[in-house]
Nucleic acid binder design. Structure first.
Lengths: 141, 141
DNA sequence: TCTCTAATTGCAAATCTTTGCAACTAAAAA
DNA sequence: TTTTTAGTTGCAAAGATTTGCAATTAGAGA
């Protein structure tokens, strides 16, 4: 419940309409302690009400991401996941050879983030980023 | 034709089998002057031969990416594209609000790339990277 | 060259996500 | 409160991508 009223209010101010579906979806992802796929959000929604539809879940999650109220991560394997902003920053190094995921210190990108804002006026979402590449084992192996 | 023999040889050495489909797909993307979706590669393949299949195209492109012979970019709109390594480095700043794409200097990430290798032994693919965020106009608007 | 085996292909089906459109409804205006 | 209208929903269908499996075949070894 913590962030929901604020989010709802902000969305209304930006011209969105607050429907019961949106309220519930926002509550689900705002309270999640981990990232969720659209399908998972849909299942949790179904537990609350039958007035739910997967398409609406997809559209709402996309909208929340566009408006900056949800993180969105493509793990590269045909499935996008969403997480609340409250999640601490993560930098995931995904090995394209063995699929291993290394958690890295995201402050590594602080300099780049700053420069992107300075030079291009662009506020990059670097707080939850996946980077693809090759891990040491796979390079040596 | 330029890089193909080298790629084929390397793949053979790594235990892959060189089929006519693979040869043609590699030739198509190695010679492309821009990124291609799997569907586009498939169409070009069809012009050459009827022995072609979209699933095989998907699998071959994925394999080339895993083995480091193709770049792979998710533009965030339900469609992944592939490009030859020969393409110069790009850093794309994609606005999640207006979808505008700003081309940025990728050397901005040189420091991060170096640190990732130093601290984590991870060779990140930062040469063709899309970063999502919000552009200046959308933040101000 | 022939044999053998594991890698690859092609198909069909499953999975994930987006889109068009008519019916519905939140919320601004009367 | 009622009306109005533009934003939303839900369905069905399309689009994008992956997966299981039987048939095929590249390439190693006899």
């Amino acid at each position: 419940m913590t962030h929901c009223p604020t989010i709802l209010q902000a969305l209304r101010q930006r011209g969105y309409r607050i429907t019961s579906q949106r309220e519930m979806i926002i509550e689900i992802i705002a309270h999640s302690d981990r990232h969720l796929s659209a399908e998972e959000v849909f299942h949790r929604l179904r537990e609350k009400t039958s007035a739910s539809n997967l398409t609406t879940v997809y559209r709402t999650l996309e909208m929340l991401w566009v408006e900056g109220f949800a993180r969105r991560n493509d793990l590269g394997e045909g499935r996008v996941v969403y997480a609340p902003l409250a999640h601490g920053p993560h930098l995931h190094l995904v090995c394209r050879s063995c699929n291993r995921v290394i958690e890295a210190d995201h402050s590594l990108l602080a300099g780049a983030e700053h420069q992107l804002r300075e030079h291009y006026g662009f506020q990059a979402d670097l707080a939850h980023l996946n980077l693809f590449g090759v891990c040491q084992d796979c390079r040596e192996g």
